[in-house]
Computed example of a mutant assay.
Amino acid sequence: MADDIEARLTAVPAPTTSPAGGDGPDDYLERRTLRRGSAGWLLLTGLGVAYVVSGDFSGWNVGLDKGGFGGLAIATVLMGAMYACLVFSLAELSTILPTAGGGYGFARRALGPWGGFLTGTAILIEYILAPAAIVIFIGDYVESLGLFGLTSSWPVYLGCFVVFIGVHLWGVGEALRFSLVVTAVAVAALLIFAVGAFTEFSADGLNDIPVDASAFGSNSWLPLGVLGIWAAFPFGMWFFLGVEGVPLAAEEAKDPVRSMPKALSISMGILALLALITFFAATGAQGADAVKTAGNPLVVALEG
């Protein structure tokens, strides 16, 4: 395997300069050759899970309101398959082109500067909007649990943004280690939640959303019909959205050629397992109808 990887790396064409004297795509990548980082596969795996784990706490449950348990289940499986293909593609690209920039660099190499620009813009939009959604989830949980005596969530939003920005200003390597600790705590919380929720699990709660008889193909499993599957797609991806950002940390990796594919694959496996556990535990504990629009579905699932 190592010989095959090195053979592919040496097969990458040497950098060239465009006829007009500007930077060609190969020259662009050459000037962004990775410096040797210090992060191993464990930190990168933690980063992959950290990008996504907040989606297990909230966001996905709105898919129950759009498609019911069956609609969201099908949407989640399909989105998981799509992300698995995406992750393995990125793992291969990270091996062949271990350069800083992740998807932006890959798209630039394949589609040229404009293709790279559009891809990079989409990635930036994703990672600008994601923290906004996360702080809303955190605010809902803090407010519902009555922590710090807060009756409004806006101080939590502000405080979380300060923490997020501060950690990244501290340094990328330090942020990776910090995120690994926070991720371990979050995963432990999900597992503890699952243990408590499964003690109240009832299969009848999975299909307790009222059936819309006017919807095509509606039944107890698809209460909003076949189109509910399509409507649940944006929420099924909450269990996986963000894992594609791991290649952006390629410059911090000690050996990106080997550690990046390993980290991406393990991250995807962990996320799929957490999605399965959280989905069934939260929905079966109090019923799909109870958690479908909650900003704090895990808390609602444990209330009884």
Rank of each mutant, 00 (worst) to 15 (best):
V142A: 05
E126P: 00
Y141D: 09
T151D: 15
S144P: 09
P131A: 05
I136K: 06
Y141V: 10
W154N: 05
P155C: 05
F137C: 10
F137Q: 11
L147G: 09
A130H: 07
I138Y: 03
E126I: 00
V135R: 01
E143M: 14
W154D: 08
V156E: 08
L150F: 15
W154A: 08
V142K: 02
E126L: 05
L147A: 12
P155G: 06
E143Y: 10
I128H: 00
L129T: 14
P155T: 10
S152P: 00
A130V: 14
S144M: 13
E143W: 07
Y141K: 07
V156L: 10
A133E: 06
G146Y: 03
A130Y: 13
S152V: 15
P131I: 04
L129Y: 07
E126F: 03
G139V: 08
I136L: 11
Y127N: 02
I128T: 14
P155D: 07
I134P: 03
E143L: 15
Y127K: 01
A133L: 09
L145V: 11
L147W: 12
V142P: 01
A130W: 11
Y141M: 09
Y127C: 02
S144K: 13
A132G: 05
L150R: 05
I128M: 08
A133V: 13
Y127Q: 04
W154Q: 09
G146P: 05
D140K: 10
I128P: 03
V142W: 02
F137W: 03
A133K: 02
W154M: 09
E143A: 15
P131T: 05
E143P: 01
D140S: 14
F148E: 04
V135D: 04
G146H: 06
I134N: 08
A130E: 11
E143S: 15
D140T: 12
S153M: 14
I125Y: 06
F137I: 13
A133S: 13
